[in-house]
Design a protein around this nucleic acid. Sequence first.
DNA 1: TAGATTGTTAATCGATTAACAATC
DNA 2: TAGATTGTTAATCGATTAACAATC
Lengths: 213, 213
Amino acid sequence: MRKTPPEIPDVILNRLPLYYKHLKKIKNKNIEYISSEELAKHTGFSSSLIRKDLNYFGTFGKKSYGYDVSCLCRQIQLIMGMHISKTLIIIGAGNMGQALAFNSGLNERGYKLKALFDVKVDLIGKSINGSPILSTEELIPFIKKEDIDIAILTVPSEVAQEITDIIIRANIKGIWDFTEIPLKVPDHVFLEEQHINEGLCKLSYKLFQNHPY
Amino acid sequence: MRKTPPEIPDVILNRLPLYYKHLKKIKNKNIEYISSEELAKHTGFSSSLIRKDLNYFGTFGKKSYGYDVSCLCRQIQLIMGMHISKTLIIIGAGNMGQALAFNSGLNERGYKLKALFDVKVDLIGKSINGSPILSTEELIPFIKKEDIDIAILTVPSEVAQEITDIIIRANIKGIWDFTEIPLKVPDHVFLEEQHINEGLCKLSYKLFQNHPY
DNA sequence: TAGATTGTTAATCGATTAACAATC
DNA sequence: TAGATTGTTAATCGATTAACAATC
């Protein structure tokens, strides 16, 4: 049974990918059913919270058995739209851009990488994991012609806003931003900022939690 | 004036790096003072929340002026322990590992990269951004001898737990994990999981928010 | 002084937990 | 049947907002 939720609270939306990550691991161990209590042990969330979260989307569990692992994985995929095909480009074919071109998570989530873009002449024309590196001058026509949904931004922070303005003019739908600079985008463009160094900050804080600063 | 907080709620700790990111941008524009209202416009948090968050650590604002941008930046650095020197290694010198070796955010946050590690013979002996690539066989003695605080994990998911167990034996203090597999670590080791593909999931969801799944 | 903006309290809102009837 | 575990409600907890006195 499936509900069509009006709007999922952010706090639940943030937990779904984590549930998914753990469920995949459990699935690989060929475990068919898992109780909310077991999943709680894996994820660190309370069993009560997990049951409530999952129930938000419909009734997926079987009383006295727990949840069908495969089925639950598939449900989360459907909720997140992972089964829907999306087009993707990477702007900035440096180390990070190239690393992400090899990220198998892209395909798994329905993203088709169409091209990378860079300004460096010695990169243009090369091919990374089957996708060509093109000149940033071709950005606008390419996005329009190939109807690109999402752009990954791995350019130097100094040019991030400039490039962003360009791709917004070309009607990009969403941006996954890896730069250090907060970007300004209009409301209709979905922006996901990957605050890559947040993890470093938190580790530093934990390491010296009670230091006399 | 500075308070010594007993324990910072996670929800505040998560916002601090975002405040920092925006404050840095504002500082670069040579703006000396900023009101909570202005900062709210930049960050998307409410001015009330920002004042309350900042007040948690002490009274940094000046009534009718706002907050001294440089001072506030420095305060957040101190709170997060960014000024304290920490040693770092990167395990897995593939695309992602090499990309992170060039991440200028490491130094900015007080991390000194001491070495990268890999199993690939053709990588071992090379140097990335001034740091040598060593064999993973040297991991345990290196961590102990150099007293390494943090390890960045950019190895294939299949070997992630195995490597983790090794570095824990060598008394690593914290792990910044870029793999797709949830890791098991003892309570005394600080684990920061970089759920790299979470952003992709959320973008996908937003793109098809009201699709009839 | 008048205006601006903080620091802080009280009120509200939302998220999590505890508990348990329903049921496989 | 007895045991297990869900789905769901009510109670609790914590986080955010609104409001405003203090004060620069």
